[in-house]
Each structure stands twice: as structure tokens, then as C-alpha cells.
Nucleic acid binder design. Structure first.
Length: 927
RNA sequence: GGGCGUAUAGCUCAGUGGUAGAGCACUUCGUUGACAUCGAAGGGGUCGGGAGUUCAACUCUCUCUACGCCCACCA
């Protein structure tokens, strides 16, 4: 077949992907090969491919394709996340459009509808990952709510419960009033918003007064609405202003509730008045103060319902007009906050904030303006309410310890290393993980409650009932009224934390029996756990990575992965974060349409340097599209010159220096590439193959072999065809992890193949670096470059053929020149080289290594231009020589520097001196 | 309040204890049958400021400045 003039990515991408997938080439059977494993961060079933996925998955695909080419049993596990909140929101939103709501259905009906949605509309992203060229093992695609995962989740929950690592507790949680569920600390995003700081008088009860005679305590708050559940006022124990009233009571003006003034270190004398109101049921700090003051969690007052509307407190003291009011102003109706402020103001208990206007007059305001760090739910987008409820917690502190140790001992290597500190810092200060969610979509918590609230945790209801019968000492099950199951589901991250082992067959083969010994899955788990590497964005370090480490070590007694690579964010062109609201989101599929998947992938790799975010740059993607075209055209050249697929894996025998040289260059490139990939330096890897292909292979090698290919066939042309074909093959293989589509296409275009490129062999040239050939071609390149730049500077048309005289050329040089006569003619436009002295008359002179080349010029030469050129060259060389001289003249340098450094300086100086002498001589000849 | 990161050519970024590199942009030239999605040759940087260590610092240490991110209970 003949290659078209231009490379059209769209014409081949889908075809090759389909080919690979249908032939099962993403997971070729390699039972005896060394395993290599990565698991893909399961994207949300609701998700579609964004630019961050493109980066994350490109990097993983590069690694897995590289390992596959190296012959490993490379497994890239893929699947989707059921994404509890996100998915439930999508389905509920659709219901809203049809004037329906979740509660119109039974739980079972609703969940059924979510499954229907999942089957029809979910998983868009899996098609999009295919467009990117990602070679994951789709034949075993998983879902966090598939049968195996369900089993794993149940077992993990039950085991953790039995080990005391999961427990039910009544404490404050982050409550999202929009979604009506508890969320974890990590799902809370703190944002600074402009708010108000109010100052109020809290009257002392029973006629008590402060030492200064005031009959009230001043308290300040940003959240006056919580006053309806105030249960104390705290002052610092050493604060002299309030010592006398500690233990005395306050009468809350709105509720009439009486409560104590307590001493607590939490109160900061420097802040506000030094006295702070305490609402244990609605503030995390106050909860702790309340507990210290002897208020049990069960006695703490709650004044809000799940939607953050006011409800009656257990002491019944909330005035009727407040009941049902929203916490904030809503739909134009004043909320509790506004009403409380208004009422206290009417009672004369508001202490105004006084400022001076520009005329120096005092002006009173209700409140002091203040920036308040406010918690928002990351999904629901509304202000989070600390709320007192019963929830399930994971004892993260205990689970974190071995995960800390694993990183400290090097069992997990975090790349880049700077993230270790973040890991330790978070793990060492970890809080209990609230894992229960008041949703319907997700893994339902395997806990049942007896009539008296007794908890029974088991994988199945029958087991729970069994436990209950035993617990209540009931002999006849028919006498037992039954258990009610916990209605909550688990945090989505609870299941995805099990991904590295649950996707490999756990827990089915947790305890191998003769029956399942032959089961592949048990070997799968054994072979592929721990995973070799995890690649993830740092944004899910805590959400996912850390939890995988905790659960993996707990249940598998080993780390989930040996290395953890964290990459940054892809930012918009101006460096800002991409977001839908800003409208600056770049669609990776659009880039694929425009430039091809290969170009986008190469861009991602080339831009991925450790520890830095990537800024989007379309021009650069375009540049890599051009690179693909360049390779395409180089292949066309080969094709039309009888260069095709190599028959050998190792480098062909070569005699010509140019062939020996390019083979050496392949060896060096392959070594540099392997080193970069092993070190997860994607940028270095991409640049290595890019420059080898374009600069070495296309710009020099192909140019230098043109005369050989066209010359008389003395065997050198055949040798060159073999070498060129082999080198092109090596390029195609080495580039494949980065640009899978174009390389697979070229692989087949260049000749008959016994296998597809995706499962080809990574280069192992078995060739030494040929220093002699390298030195010779380096000289040739230098000479040709010198000739070219000389012409430009002397305004000689580049196509002009010239002759050169090398009067001081020794035998070795003469031989060298003779060997490359054809290339010098064709590439350097030096048609004749003589070793006789140059004739008198105008000439250009150039110095390469230790010889001077005199190029006689027909007609007038611009003496001044030639002088300027030589002078400039001389200046450069002398400057370097001078600096080297200075260094060598410094006794300290000679004594203290490393011997190699001094040695090199001496050698460099000798070279520079020769060169400058020659340039000076050339200059002198010009007169 | 802690922690981290980044400041290198007009732009986006690599980089090494021995006087700096890439891509794009820019300038000049080029239709020699692979490629104008190209080729050739160039211009352009006191490597954020200051101090220190060293024979030598863009590279190590400290400090300052600017920007960014993460964590944290300041009512």
C-alpha cells in the first residue's frame, strides 16, 4: 500500500482501536510473564471525559503500553464508580423535570430507576476513553456496585465492625441541608464570604452583675440563629472580667432558657468581649466545650431539621413564631437569623457597631462587617450545618498508622517525593471518617436494629436475625418480631477504596479451598496485588489514594501499590482553573477531532513534569500533530526508497559510519527513554523520542543516506535500506506508548508483520555505542553546519555549490572526507574537496576541529562580512579560552577541584586555543 | 495559623556545582521529488531581590518579595 501525502488521524483511530479491542490485545495471554498492574481511578458513571481524565489516562496508558511492549503481563483494570450523590442527583433532576420526586417512589423502585438510567445513559466516558486510545482491559470491566464489589464491601464493613474499627456514634456531622445527608470532612469546602459579626447583651439571671456593675455579658457571634439552642456562655478561666460570674446563670432573652456561664480555655479573651455563646448542637467547637461542661451528646439541644428549618427543641422553649422558619432569608421571607437580630434589637440587647463617616460623625450599624470562612458542601453547594445525628464512623486513626509506616519505610514510594509531607500531615491528624449517607443509591449498610435499638451487623439478614435470637435468648424464631435494617448507604469512597484488590477477585478467594484452587481469579489476585503503580491527580490523594492504602493494608496485609504518582491539574491557557461556571473548559474530544488523539496524548506527556500543573496550549498540541505528520512523511520517504519493515529485532550488521552512527543513536535513545519512563519523567521521555525522530533521524540520517541510496549498488545501499528500516521500526515501537494510532498504522504500512505493534517487542538493540562512527558523523554534521552558516552570513545563495581546500588535512582527515564525499556534495553542497593550498583570491575560511577549510569564492567577496564573521567566531572562542585559562591559573581551582574537572578544563583549553589560533590565522590572511 | 509549590528567552516550560536549553512566537533566506502541518540560518536571558557556603552557584543554605495551592475550630 502507499501512504497518502497527509496523515489523517480520524481515518485510522477508530479502526485500530476496534482492531485491538476485538482481538483482545489489551490483555494478551501471558501466563508466564512477569505481571505488571495498574488500576484506573474509576470515573463516575455520570461523568464524561474532561481534560483532567485525558491527562490521567494518557499517563497510565503510556506506562501500560510500555510494559506490555516489554513483554510483561500488563493489566490495566478499568471500571466505573456508582458515585452515590452525583448519580442520585442526576436521576432526581430528571424526575423533577417530569414533576416527579424521589419520594413518589419506594426505595426499591427508585433504585431500579437509577439502574435503568445507568444502563441507558451511564458510562459515556468509557467510549471517550477509547477515543483517547486507552488500552485498559475492558473484558473485565468492573463497577463499584457489581456483584463482586458488593460482596467485598459487605465483608469489609462487617470485618471492620467486628474488629471495632467501624462504630455507630452520635456526634456532630457535616450535614448538607440541600442533599439531606451527612458528608465527610473532605466533602466540605471552606470559602471566605462576606458576613456580619453581631454583638449582643446576654442578661445575667437572678440579679447578678459583673464587677463593673453591668447586668449582662456581651457576646459576639456570626451565627445569631443558633441562639435558640444556646446552652452556655463560656469565658476563659483566667479572664478577670468574668471570674466572679462563673457558675452564675444567663437567661436567654428569646427562649427564656437559663444556662450557666462556664470556664473553658476555648474562650479567647482577646476576641470580641472574651465571652462566647455555646451551642453544642450546632457548632463543632461548642460541641467540645459542651462535653467538657458536662453536657452529654444526647442532651444537646437541636433546633434545626434536616432541611435547616427551625424545629422545636426538646425543652420546648423555642417560640412558636420561629418554628418552620428557614435558617437564612429565603424567597424573600426573613429567616431565623434575621428574626433573632430584629427581636434582640427591639429588646435593646443589640450592641451597635459604631464607625465614623467622613465628616467624623459617629454612625451606628447593626453589625460589624467581617469575612467569614464558611463551609459549603462540594456537591450540594449550600452552607453546611453541623448537625447532631447518629452516623457510622470508621476509625481512620487506627487504619492510618500502617499507611503512614508504609510510606515511611518505603513500601510505598510517593512520586514526587514532596507529597510525602502532605501524606504524613493528613494521616497523622486524621479524624473519624463518617461513612454513612442518607441516600438510596449505594451500598446499603449491613446493620439491623432490634426493637430496643440493639445493633446487629452481618453480611446477610439471616445472620443478623441469628445473632438477634441469640442476643435476646429467643428459642422460637416465630416469637421474634424481626429486625429493621439501617436505611443509610455507604460513602462512595468506601467502596472505591477497595478497588486495588476487590477488582482482582477478593474476597472470593480470601480463603482458597480445593474447589477454587483452579480458579483464575485467585491467581489474578495473587499475581496482581500489590499493584505496581497508581497514577492519580493530587486532588483525590485523601479521598481515594489514602483510603486505598488504609483498606488495602488492613485487608490484604500489604500495600495496594508500590508506587504512587501524583500529577497536577490541567489549567486553562491563562493559568486559571477550568470550570463550567467560568466557561473556560477545554474539551479533550474537540482537541482529538482537531489534531488527533496521538497529538493530544503527546502533548500531555511532553507537558507532564513532576510537581507542576499543566497549562493548556493549543499551539503546542498543533506542534505535536505536526510531529506526527513529520514521521508520516519520513515513512513515505522510506517507502518510496525501498525501505520497509525490518526482518530482525536486533540491529543489522553495518559498515558505513552513518549507519553505525544511527544505530548507536538508537541505543542511546532507547536507554534514555527507558530511564525516563522508569523514573516517571514523562516530559523527558517524550522529548527524547521527539528529538531523536526529528533531529537525528529526519534531519540528518535521512539526508545523509540519500546519496547512498541513489549511488551505484556496491552493497552499501542494501545495507542502508536494512538499517533505515530497522531504525524506523525502533522509532515506531518506542513512540507507540505515546502515539499508538499513527505508529500502529505505520507498522503495518511498512510491510508484512507477524503481530500487531501493540504487542511488538520493545527495542533491545544488543549494540554497543560506536564511538568512532559517532565522532565521524558528529564531525560531518559540524562541517556541513559551518558551511551553511558561512554561506548565509556571506550572502551566498544556499544552493551554490562550492569547492574546499584543506591544505593541512592529514591522512585520516583525507580518508574521512573521501568517505563522505557524496554526502558533503549533496547535503553540504561541497562538490570538491582538495588538499592542495587554496588559490590566491577571495575565499571564506572555516575552522572545524583541528583543520581549516578554505572555500574560494567566485567573484567579489564581501571582505568586511567575512572579517566580521571570523572576528565574531574568534571572540566567542577566545572568551571561553580566557575563562578556562583564568580558572586553571587559579591555584585554588587546581588544588581543590575534582581531578576530572581540572582535566576537562585543560583539554577544553587546548581545543579552544587551537581553534582560536586557526581563526586568527584565517583573519590574518584576509589582511 | 501551619504546610507545600512556583519565580530561567516575548509566551509555555525543561535543566545541571564548572559562564544556560526546548516548543511556540520573531527575523532572513529557500518550490534541489518524504514533508511549507516543511527546510536552512539567526536574534533574544545580569536564570525574582539580597546574603552565605564553595576554588566555582542558575544549580546548595538562609532571607526577602510576588503569585498559586492544601490543611486548620478563631466565636
Amino acid at each position: 500500500m502507499t501512504l497518502d501525502k497527509n496523515f489523517d488521524p480520524a481515518a485510522i483511530e477508530a479502526r485500530w482501536y476496534e482492531h485491538w479491542e476485538s482481538k483482545g490485545l489489551f490483555r494478551p495471554e501471558r501466563k508466564d510473564a512477569e505481571p505488571y498492574t495498574i488500576v484506573n481511578p474509576p470515573p463516575n458513571v455520570t461523568g464524561s471525559l474532561h481534560i483532567g481524565h485525558a491527562l490521567d489516562n494518557t499517563l497510565q496508558d503510556i506506562i501500560i503500553r510500555h510494559e506490555r511492549l516489554k513483554g510483561k503481563d500488563a493489566l490495566w483494570v478499568v471500571g466505573m464508580d456508582h458515585a452515590g450523590i452525583a448519580t442520585q442527583m442526576v436521576v432526581e433532576r430528571q424526575m423533577n423535570e417530569r414533576q416527579q420526586k424521589r419520594t413518589d417512589f419506594t426505595r426499591e423502585e427508585f433504585v431500579e430507576k437509577v439502574w435503568e438510567w445507568k444502563e441507558e445513559s451511564g458510562g459515556t466516558i468509557t467510549k471517550q476513553l477509547r477515543r483517547l486510545g486507552c488500552s485498559m482491559d475492558w473484558s473485565n470491566e468492573r463497577f463499584t456496585m457489581d456483584e463482586g464489589m458488593n460482596e467485598a464491601v459487605l465483608k469489609v464493613f462487617v470485618d471492620l465492625y467486628n474488629d471495632g474499627l467501624i462504630y455507630r456514634d452520635k456526634r456532630l456531622v457535616n450535614w448538607d441541608p440541600a442533599l439531606k445527608t451527612a458528608i465527610s470532612d473532605l466533602e466540605v469546602e471552606t470559602t471566605d464570604i462576606k458576613g456580619s459579626f453581631w454583638h449582643f447583651k446576654y442578661p445575667l439571671a437572678d440579679g447578678a452583675t459583673l464587677d463593673d456593675g453591668r447586668d449582662y455579658i456581651e457576646i459576639a457571634t456570626t451565627r445569631p440563629e443558633t441562639m435558640l439552642a444556646d446552652m452556655a456562655v463560656a469565658v476563659h478561666p483566667s479572664d478577670d472580667r468574668y471570674k466572679s460570674v462563673i457558675g452564675k446563670e444567663i437567661e436567654q432573652p428569646i427562649t427564656g432558657r437559663r444556662f450557666k456561664i462556664v470556664a473553658d480555655e476555648h474562650a479567647d479573651p482577646e476576641l470580641g468581649s472574651g465571652a462566647v455563646k455555646i451551642t453544642p448542637g450546632h457548632d463543632f467547637n461548642d460541641f467540645e466545650v459542651g462535653k467538657r461542661a458536662g453536657i452529654a451528646a444526647g442532651d444537646m439541644l437541636n433546633m434545626l431539621d434536616g432541611e435547616a428549618n427551625v424545629c422545636q427543641t426538646s425543652d420546648g422553649l423555642v417560640p412558636e413564631e420561629y418554628i418552620g422558619l428557614h435558617r437564612f432569608k429565603k424567597d424573600g421571607i426573613a429567616g431565623v437569623r434575621e428574626l433573632v437580630v430584629q427581636q434582640l434589637k427591639e429588646l435593646g440587647l443589640l450592641i451597635p457597631h459604631v464607625t465614623k463617616n467622613k465628616d467624623g460623625e459617629e454612625v451606628e450599624h447593626d453589625a460589624e462587617p467581617r469575612t467569614i470562612a464558611t463551609p459549603f458542601g462540594d456537591r450540594g453547594g449550600v452552607v453546611i450545618e453541623p448537625w447532631l445525628t447518629d452516623q457510622w464512623y470508621v476509625d481512620a486513626e487506627t487504619l492510618a498508622q500502617p499507611a503512614i509506616k508504609a510510606v515511611r519505610d518505603g513500601d510505598i514510594e510517593i512520586v514526587p517525593k514532596t507529597w510525602e509531607k502532605t501524606w504524613f500531615n493528613w494521616m497523622e491528624n486524621i479524624q473519624p471518617w463518617c461513612v454513612s449517607r442518607q441516600l438510596w443509591w449505594g451500598h446499603r449498610i449491613p446493620a439491623w436494629y432490634g426493637p430496643d435499638g440493639e445493633i446487629f451487623v452481618a453480611e446477610f439478614e439471616e445472620e443478623a436475625i441469628g445473632q438477634a435470637l441469640e442476643h435476646y435468648a429467643i428459642d422460637n424464631p416465630e416469637d421474634f418480631p424481626g429486625l429493621s435494617r439501617d436505611t443509610d448507604v455507604l460513602d462512595t469512597w468506601f467502596s472505591s477504596a477497595l478497588w486495588p484488590f476487590a477488582t482482582l477477585g477478593w474476597p472470593i478467594d480470601d480463603a482458597p479451598t480445593p474447589a477454587n484452587d483452579a480458579d483464575v481469579s485467585s491467581k489474578t489476585l495473587e499475581r496482581h496485588y500489590p499493584n505496581d503503580l497508581l497514577i492519580s491527580g493530587f486532588d483525590i490523594l485523601f479521598f481515594w489514594d489514602a483510603r486505598m492504602a488504609m483498606q488495602g493494608i488492613q485487608f490484604m496485609k500489604d500495600v495496594p501499590w508500590k508506587r504512587l504518582y501524583l500529577h497536577g491539574l490541567v489549567r486553562a491557557e491563562d493559568g486559571s482553573k477550568m470550570s463550567k461556571s467560568k466557561g473556560n473548559v477545554v474539551d479533550p474530544l474537540g482537541l482529538i477531532d482537531e489534531y488527533g488523539a496521538d497529538a493530544l496524548r503527546f502533548f500531555m506527556a511532553a507537558m507532564e513534569s513532576q510537581g507542576r500543573d499543566i497549562k493548556m496550549d493549543d499551539k503546542r498540541v498543533e506542534g505535536y500533530r505536526n510531529f506526527a505528520t513529520k514521521l508520516w512523511n519520513a515513512s513515505r520517504f522510506c517507502e518510496t526508497n525501498g525501505i520497509g519493515a525490518s526482518k530482525t529485532l536486533s540491529a543489522p550488521e553495518a559498515t558505513l559510519p552513518v549507519n553505525r552512527w544511527i544505530i548507536s543513536e538508537v541505543v542511546e535513545t532507547q536507554q534514555a527513554l527507558d530511564k525516563a519512563l522508569t523514573g516517571l519523567r514523562f516530559d523527558a521521555a517524550a522529548n527524547t523520542i521527539y528529538h531523536f525522530t526529528w533531529d537525528r533521524f529526519c534531519d540528518w540520517y535521512l539526508e545523509l543516506i540519500k546519496p547512498v541510496l541513489q549511488g551505484d549498488d556496491d552493497g552499501t545501499a542494501d545495507e542502508t535500506r536494512l538499517v533505515a528500516g530497522w531504525v524506523l521500526d525502533q522509532i515506531i515501537v518506542m513512540l507507540h506508548p505515546f502515539m499508538p494510532f499513527i505508529t500502529e498504522e505505520l507498522w503495518h504500512s511498512m510491510g508484512e508483520r507477524n503481530y500487531d505493534l501493540i504487542v511488538a517487542k520493545w527495542p533491545a538493540p544488543k549494540a554497543e555505542i560506536d564511538a568512532e562512527a559517532k565522532g565521524e558523523i558528529d564531525w560531518l554534521i559540524k562541517l556541513v553546519s559551518e558551511v551553511r552558516s558561512t554561506k548565509v552570513e556571506l550572502n551566498i545563495p544556499p544552493g551554490t555549490k562550492m569547492a574546499a581546500h584543506v591544505p593541512d588535512g592529514d591522512n585520516a582527515l583525507q580518508d574521512k572526507i573521501a568517505r563522505h564525499a557524496a554526502a558533503l556534495d549533496r547535503v553540504g553542497r561541497l562538490e570538491a574537496v582538495s588538499f592542495d593550498p587554496a588559490p590566491d583570491g577571495a575565499s571564506a575560511q572555516l575552522v572545524v576541529d583541528d583543520a581549516t577549510y578554505v572555500l574560494p569564492l567566485a567573484g567579489a567577496i564581501d571582505i568586511d562580512a567575512e572579517k566580521a564573521r571570523l572576528t565574531k567566531a574568534l571572540e566567542g572562542v577566545s572568551k571561553e579560552a580566557k575563562s578556562l585559562e583564568g580558572r586553571l591559573g587559579n591555584a585554588n581551582f587546581v588544588e581543590k577541584a575534582k581531578p576530572e574537572a581540572a582535566e576537562k578544563a585543560r583539554a577544553d583549553l587546548a581545543d579552544k586555543t587551537t581553534e582560536s589560533e586557526r581563526l586568527q590565522a584565517a583573519l590574518d590572511r584576509l589582511g
